[in-house]
Structure formats: structure tokens, C-alpha cells
Amino acid sequence: MRSPKFRLLGLAVAPLIFLSACGSDGDADNASQTAAGDDAAATSIAPNGTVEDVTLTEADVEGSTVPALELAKTPLSVAETSVQEIEAGEGETTTAEQDVELRYLAVNGTTGEEILSTFPTDETVVMSLSNPNLLPGFLNGLVGTKPGQSMILAMSPQDAFGAAGNAQLGIGPNDTVIFYVEVVKATTPLTQAEGEAVEPVEGLPTVEADGTSPATITIPEGEEPPSELVVQPLIKGEGAEIQAGQQVRMQYTGVQWSDGELFDTSLQEGREAFETVIGAGQVIQGWDEGLVGQTVGSRVLLVIPPAMGYGAAQEDGPGYELKDETLVFVVDILAAQ
């Protein structure tokens, strides 16, 4: 049976502007978003334009020239999501299973105000087109694009944040959201560990894993749990090393050392690969310390003493029932950005 306790210590880190409202954050969050949307509804208007009412211009930000968007009218509202291509791309078209790396600028069509932009810092973000929580406008608008392609995307309210709006971004329930997007590249992410097998270490739990179902982890009989964190690669991936602060996508299985009982796994029907920031205090300490420095494509065995797991968990808090347990995880590192 799925336990949510581990996942509650992770944080969904896909950029907020890309994600639709969902119930996992609790009724209180949804209520606050709805309330903010009600306030903004008074300024919403009936559809009165198209993506052709948006022009790509330039702005000066601290001495650097960056893209900007100019609206022919404010407020601007579109009935259907539409695209205005600025430059054509080259190469293979992206598919719904790929990750797309891009730069973007977002503007609220109702107010004309900029919401977010990656251009002043020349950053890129990676969006998983297989993520069902993406805004519908992105799920439909980015499949079929090519590296080097740039476009203006006018996203209708129903393809953006819909009735919930997004209070944190100042977006109401009837706001059109306008994006300027530059596609950098698309990649097909790993679905399981891939690399060179590493010789098992005597005295550690043994692992049978196929990458598609929960790993079978066998605790060595008669062995006391280690008092220090153990990090043992089982497969050495050929990808880049994980750096603290990166967003990492993983599949994992976790069992208790005391009896080998499974307490959580991402490899379960209906669940997606787990994504979080590593090395930033958003997951338990054993993950933060154990996964930094490992490589993409690796399968890693983590044996985590209570003090680096849930030892400090409060009663009725996430992981409290595991506070005295040494935890054993098998983690497949699929991607990092």
C-alpha cells in the first residue's frame, strides 16, 4: 500500500507558471487561490482579441537587451489558445514523451504586466511534456516544436489556470496568459537506471530491480544497521554529476531495515517519477547528502540512519512512524537540471 509520508517531504519544483492548480496542496491553498480569483474576476472581460494583438519587442534590463511583449490593447483576452511563430526551428520535432528546455517570458493579458522572465539571467528551464500537471496550453502547444523555434503563445483562461487562477502569480480565473517562448532543445529522459553495473558490497542489503516495478530489497540477516550514512552505487550512470540545488527526477523504493517492510515507492501504478531539489533541505538529510555527486543514470543504494531520516519528525507529522527506523532506499536517477 502506498504511504505518502516520504513524498510529503519533497517539493514539486517545476516552475509554478507551468503548473495547473491541483488538490495535493490542501483545501486551504485552493481556497486562497479561489478567493484571489474572485477578486480579479471584476476586471476580467469577454474575449476581445487574438495572439496577433501581441508584438515581440525589446527592453533594457540593467544594461542588457531582453525580449519584451507589447499588447495592442489592455486588457486582452482570447477565446482560444493560439500561436504566432516568430522563428522556425530545425531538426526533429518534439514528442509528448520528451523534456523540452526553453527560455520564456510571461505576461498577464488582463493587466499587461510581466509575470516572470528567464531572459535577464539567461537561464533555461526544462519542462516535462509527460507531466499531466502542466498547463493544457503547454501540453498542446509545445508538442511538435523544434530546437531554435520561437513563438508567442496566447493561452486562454481555460488552457491556463482556469477557475482557480493563481494567487501567487497574481493571475485571476479569467485572465489570458501570454508567453514568449524560445525552444532550446528536446531530450528523451531515462525511464530507469542505465550504465555499468557495480560489484555488490558484502554486508549491505541486496537488491533485485528491473526499473519498472518496486525493487526487492533484502536486509542481511543478523547484521546491525550502520550508524553512518551508506551510499553505494549499484549501477554507475554516464550522465553529469548531481549538484546541490538541482532539480532531480528519480524513481525509488524504500524499506525499513528492521523488517524489510516496504513503506514507499514511486514505482506504483498511477504515480509519476518523483522530482525534487536535492541538497537544499527539501527532502530528508540522507537523500540530500547521499545523492549529491552521484551521476545521472545511476542506481544508488542509500542506507540512512534515523538521525538523517525521520528521527526529528514530530508526532502526527510526516514520517513520524519511521522516526526510529534505519531506512533503505534504492534510487534510480533519471534526470537533473
Rank of each mutant, 00 (worst) to 15 (best):
M1T: 13
P4M: 07
V13I: 09
G23R: 10
G26S: 10
D27E: 14
S32A: 15
S32E: 15
T34Q: 14
D38A: 13
V54T: 01
V61L: 05
S64N: 15
V66I: 14
V66P: 04
E70Y: 07
L71K: 01
A72E: 10
L76H: 01
E80F: 07
T81S: 14
S82D: 11
V83T: 12
Q84L: 12
E87W: 07
E92R: 14
T93M: 13
T94F: 05
T95R: 08
E97D: 13
V100M: 06
N108G: 02
N108K: 07
T111I: 03
G112A: 04
T118Q: 07
T121W: 10
T121A: 11
T121S: 11
S128A: 15
S130K: 11
N131P: 06
L135N: 00
G144Y: 01
T145G: 09
M151R: 06
I152M: 05
A160R: 01
F161T: 05
F161A: 04
Q168M: 14
G172I: 03
N174S: 13
T176M: 02
F179V: 02
F179I: 04
V184D: 13
K185G: 04
T187G: 08
L190E: 02
A193R: 01
A197N: 13
V198T: 06
P200C: 08
E202Q: 11
E208G: 07
E208I: 09
A209V: 08
T212F: 13
T212E: 12
S213L: 08
E221H: 00
E223G: 00
P226V: 00
V230L: 04
Q232R: 06
A240L: 12
Q243F: 10
A244P: 07
Q247N: 08
D259V: 04
L262R: 10
F274V: 03
V277T: 15
I284W: 07
W287P: 04
W287F: 15
G290T: 08
T295S: 12
V296T: 07
V296E: 08
L301Q: 09
A307R: 15
M308N: 08
G319E: 04
G319A: 03
V331Q: 00
Q337D: 14
Q337F: 14
